[in-house]
Every structure is written in structure tokens, then in C-alpha cells.
């Protein structure tokens, strides 16, 4: 369970380093964010939601059955647009509006 950064997208704003509930993220010498303790990630996705440029993706470790897919998210008003990239590269986007309750 951990996250990875698209370094080219990172703007070094530090929002992810501030929000991580495990204080696991830091900025490197070039001012880009990185995961300092990948094995300590809980998988809560707080950093994904906080990142203004969607530079962070969540993936499942192989030891928990991960297959190499990733999960990203982008905020659009009250909606979170979640995008799952499957191992074959195809993508599925699921919008979730905070004004709509779960049905279960």
C-alpha cells in the first residue's frame, strides 16, 4: 500500500506533506514532494485529494494482491473525479458528489 508521485507535475506546494496523517511525505532538495516512508502508508488517499495538480497516485502493494493499477483523483466543485488506471492502461472515471449520500 503506498503512493507514487509524477515528479514532473509536482509544483512543490507542500499541501501533501502538511496533510499526511502519518507525516510520511517531505520535499526534496529540488522542492519536489516524495514519499519518505512508503511502507508506512495507510492508504487513506488524503494526499491525493489535497494535491492541486493530481500528481499523486495510490497503488496496492503486491503483498496485498495489488496488480499494478493506480487510483488518482481530481476535484471539480463539489465532485471528486476518481480515475482508476487498470494494469492494461485502460481507465475508468467515477465521479462522486459530496452532496449525494451513499445508498448503502
Amino acid at each position: 500500500m503506498s503512493i507514487r508521485f509524477t515528479r514532473a507535475l509536482c509544483i512543490g506546494c507542500g499541501a501533501c506533506t502538511e496533510i499526511c496523517p502519518g507525516s510520511l511525505l517531505a520535499l526534496d532538495a529540488q522542492g519536489k514532494a516524495f514519499m519518505a516512508h512508503p511502507e508506512n502508508c495507510w492508504g487513506c488517499a488524503s494526499c491525493l485529494k489535497e494535491c492541486p495538480v493530481s500528481a499523486i497516485a495510490l497503488y496496492l502493494g503486491a503483498d496485498m494482491g495489488g496488480l499494478g493499477g493506480t487510483l488518482r483523483v481530481r476535484r471539480e466543485g463539489t465532485r471528486l473525479l476518481w480515475t482508476i488506471q487498470k494494469p492494461d492502461g485502460t481507465e475508468i472515471t467515477i465521479p462522486v458528489d459530496s452532496r449525494e449520500a451513499n445508498h448503502y
Binding site: M1, G43, A45, L58, Y59, L60, G65, G66, L67, G68, G69, T70, L71, L80, W82, I84, K86, P87, I92, I94, V96, N102, H103, Y104
Partner: peptide
């Protein structure tokens, strides 16, 4: 609906369902 519901609390489950 379940895929959406899990994104609101445990997003790794939705990732697992859809990547597989």
C-alpha cells in the same frame, strides 16, 4: 453504487475491484 461508496471511506477496495 458499492464502488462509489467505498471511494468515500476505503478507496483501495474500489481500486482492487476495478484493477482486477
Amino acid at each position: 453504487d458499492l464502488q462509489r461508496a467505498y471511494l468515500n471511506m476505503a478507496p483501495s477496495q474500489t481500486l482492487k475491484w476495478l484493477e482486477s
